[in-house]
Each structure stands twice: as structure tokens, then as C-alpha cells.
Design a protein around this nucleic acid. Sequence first.
DNA 1: TTTATTAGTTTGATTGTCAAATTATCTTGA
DNA 2: TCAAGATAATTTGACAATCAAACTAATAAA
Lengths: 135, 135
Amino acid sequence: MHSLNNLIIEFYDKLSSWEQSVVKDTGYSLAQVHTIEVLGSHGPMRMKELADRLGITTGTLTVQVEKLVQFGLIVRTPHEVDRRSIMVELTSEGTALHKQHNRMHLQLTEDITRHLDPESIKVLTQSFEKMNREF
Amino acid sequence: MHSLNNLIIEFYDKLSSWEQSVVKDTGYSLAQVHTIEVLGSHGPMRMKELADRLGITTGTLTVQVEKLVQFGLIVRTPHEVDRRSIMVELTSEGTALHKQHNRMHLQLTEDITRHLDPESIKVLTQSFEKMNREF
DNA sequence: TTTATTAGTTTGATTGTCAAATTATCTTGA
DNA sequence: TCAAGATAATTTGACAATCAAACTAATAAA
């Protein structure tokens, strides 16, 4: 258990460094790419929900979103029924960036699991499912 | 492979949020606790090595270390042979903080793996070892 | 012994962040 | 119904963390 704990921490640190270096190559900041990632994997959503998912305040997000709109990566549209709310979604460019980033992630996953046999991959997948459920 | 990739990303995000909330309770910042974590798990080291492990410049670290010294969590001592270098190490208070944080991590690992059978834990551990090697 | 490299600090600028105040809209309960 | 409270987003002012570049001191290499 103790060694598994250390392995998880090491895994997290390495994934962190990897993400940092991959993001740097895009020319956008970590916070910006993270915003694109969330919108890309969960679809359009309100400012409030996006802020909650990113773990930041809406005040911070307002500024962040402003920049991404200027970059042409996202657009703001009024919420259909709630006029207080604003929906945020990816443009085609934003979607392209998300897809590109996703491909990098997929490639990394393939790279780091290449010495695992099919049975281990199966157990690993099931274990991640169970662990994610327990957070 | 595609689903494993998504599970890894989800795992990473959840671990990120967990760390954020756990760190907030300590009263120290994420960057500060991270510095303590690295020193705690790898022992005393030079500024340069610490900066590299944290993925920041030595300029940033100089400021960061200054604060941690004021908090009484670390001390700076001259390097024994290289007079350009400065060794940074945890005080007993810093060590206490590290141990406390480590206990939280261990508890989390126990919590999220409680529905895994011994054989899965074994495979999971071996898989993490292999994946960490491939980064 | 020059010259180049390395370790750490300082400085100035930028980014990401929050809390609090503000405006607009929605929801609720009397 | 409608006044009071709650919620969504923005704005503002203040910090934290960060980097790049200039700088000092010490070591390494030619």
C-alpha cells in the first residue's frame, strides 16, 4: 500500500510535467488549455459550471474567457431560458485544439502502457474505474 | 485504449482537486506544500536541483524559499564544498508538515483502493511501476 | 591564467487568482 | 402578486507565482 501510494504520487508528478511541456508547445497557457479541455470533453456549459469544473471563481473565469474569445477559441452565447446565464462553447478552432491535445494524451497513454500485456491493461482499466468512483 | 486514456485524465483531475482542497486546509499555498513534499521525499538538496524538480526557475525559487524560511519550515545552509551552492532542508516543523501531508496521501490511496482485491492491487502496482518508467 | 560555465539573487513585467462590490435576472414565500 | 432573497456574471483592487534578463560570486576548462 505504501509503495502503491508512492507510485501514484510519482505518476501524478510525471503526468504534471508532461502536461506542462506539451501545453507550452501550443503557445497557450496551462489555464487556457485546461479550459479548452473541459469544454471539449463535456460540451458547452454556463460560466458558473465551467468555473466550478475548473476550480476557480467566476470572476477569474470572466477574464480568462475574454482572452480565449479574442483568440477565437471559444464563443459566448446567451442561455436560452435563463437570461442571467451565458453559455460558453468551442469554436471550430477551439475544437481543433482540443482534438490535437487529446491525440497527444492518447499517444502518451499508448507509450506508457506499451509494456503491459492485455490482461494487465484490462485490470488497470477496471481499477481506474473503481478508483475514480471512490474520490 | 481510448477509455483507459479518459480514465487516466479523470484520475489526474480528481487527484488535482483533492490535492488543492487538502493543501488549502494547511494554510499554505500549493507551491509551498509542493516544495515541502519534494524536500521531504528526496531529502536536502541544492537550490538548482530543487528548482529543476519543481519545474520552476531558480529566480522564482529564491523568493519561494525566503518565505518558507520565514515560516520556519526550511533552513538554508552553505554547500560543504561548492561555495556557489546553498543546501535547502526541512526543519523539524517542515518534516512534521511533510509527514502529515504524507499521511493524507496514504489515507487517500487506501480509500480509493478499498474495493480492489489483492490480486488487482498487485497488478496495479506493477503497472504503475512500468508506466512510471516509460515517461 | 584567462575564459567560459554554473549557482544563486534581484528586478520588472505578466498571469492567474481571490474577495468584495455591483448589476441583472430568477425564485420563493407571504 | 410582488417584495425579499438567491443566483449568474462582471468589475475592481490586491496579491501569489511565475519568467526572462541582468548581475555577482565561484568553479571549471582552455
